[in-house]
Nucleic acid binder design. Structure first.
Lengths: 121, 121
DNA sequence: GAACTATATTGACATTCATCGAATTAGCGA
DNA sequence: TCGCTAATTCGATGAATGTCAATATAGTTC
């Protein structure tokens, strides 16, 4: 278990939109690490399937949905878990994954646009 | 100008939270490409500075804020532009960047958590 | 305990990526 | 036109990453 989870919020406020205040280098590194977890087509789809499942979902139900090997799915799930986006539990032979909405909500807030932000348009 | 902008929304609905409906492979690739643009500490900080500037901002004001070279900043800005997150205009000797809030809002919606979604916690 | 299934880990490999220095383009002013 | 500054593009390089086959671990069933 190489649990090297991403620490976030350690630099203070974790829930302020970036259009509200610029990130310092430390916060940017933390945020980028979580975005990186979603920056792969397989992982983003995995995340969306797990998040929309409405309930925990078995790895055995996830794997056949993809064209990549089992070990690759396992690898991607670990990345999502290290990013704090999902968690899992072994129950018998099977392993079940569920979403951690807090981390997703955090990213969502980071990217939220207060009202009429942005000068350009 | 290698403008290979990321097409999104081409697969239909672009503004549905992933906790609401799972992404198909095409949508996942489009979304992952935009997240990838934010999956770097320098780029995420650049994005936050540009988004929080309240107005367009000159590259000459961005570069000294980072420990990387000018060409590297230029490279990262191009990635953000190709992702549709910012746009720019040359005015005289200088080039000014501003945020495109729509794309940020799209990502924010993707990650938004309706209410009490997520089975686990 | 042996055989079997479901996941995870390991090790290797090809590709992608962040970064830099050097060269290039764009515009200003003398 | 010549020099100067701002920004981008080019080419190269070392590091990170996605993938798979092989192996290992966890658990069930006989």
């Amino acid at each position: 278990m190489s649990k090297q989870e991403i620490a976030f919020g350690s630099s203070g406020g974790c829930c302020r939109p970036i259009s509200d205040a610029a990130l310092d280098p430390v916060a940017a590194s933390e945020g980028a690490a979580v975005f990186k977890a979603l920056a792969d087509p397989v992982r983003l789809r995995l995340m969306s399937i797990i998040a929309s499942a409405g309930d925990e979902i078995c790895v055995c139900d996830l794997t056949p949905l993809f064209d990549v090997s089992g070990p690759t799915i396992s690898h991607h799930l670990r990345v999502l878990r290290d990013a704090g986006l999902v968690d899992c539990e072994r129950r018998g032979t099977w392993v079940y994954y569920w979403p951690l909405p807090e981390r997703m909500a955090w990213l969502s807030t980071l990217l939220s646009v207060p009202a009429g932000a942005g000068a350009g348009n």
